[in-house]
């Protein structure tokens, strides 16, 4: 399984984060694994990562849609302002989606959708689709 330089989990549910963190650690796919509880924290962490690794990447963001402070949609808006936006691969990880939300999300540069819970199989598919080596 390929190893990604950086994976960012953005979800306000800390138990989900705990389980996903545990899974990714067990799978050993991430060089650096960070957890953000909202979009704002996620953005700050991306800036920090690219500050330390200006040409680093790619970064995989597993993004929840409903989050306090800054939700998934606003995060995607803000992400487009980052110079390194091209190096970020965003996958929406959520429970069920309202069709209206899906339509709005599709207007942004996203790599795909995954429904919770995240499993080893789903992760494997994701890596082979978006990070072929």
């Amino acid at each position: 399984m390929p190893k990604l330089p950086c994976v960012l989990l953005a979800d306000d549910d800390s138990i989900t984060n705990y389980l996903n963190q545990r899974l990714l650690t067990r799978l050993g796919v991430a060089g650096e694994l960070s957890v953000a509880l909202n979009g704002e924290q996620a953005l700050a962490m991306l800036r920090d990562y690219f500050g330390r690794h200006p040409t680093g990447g790619p970064v995989l963001v597993l993004l929840d849609v409903k989050m306090p402070v800054m939700g998934g949609l606003r995060f995607l808006d803000a992400l487009e302002q980052l110079p390194q936006a091209e190096a970020v691969v965003t996958v929406i990880l959520t429970t069920s989606l309202h069709p209206q939300d899906t339509a709005q999300l599709r207007e942004h540069r996203i790599a795909g959708f995954l429904s919770k819970p995240l499993t080893a199989e789903k992760m494997q598919d994701l890596l082979s689709t978006h990070f072929p080596q």
Binding site: D13, I15, T16, L19, R22, T95, S96, K116, P117
Partner: peptide, 16 residues
């Protein structure tokens, strides 16, 4: 929608 998240977590925790 909202019940799905915690039950998914419970299942995940059970698995853990």
């Amino acid at each position: 929608h909202d019940l799905r998240a915690p039950i998914t977590n419970i299942e995940g925790l059970l698995d853990t």
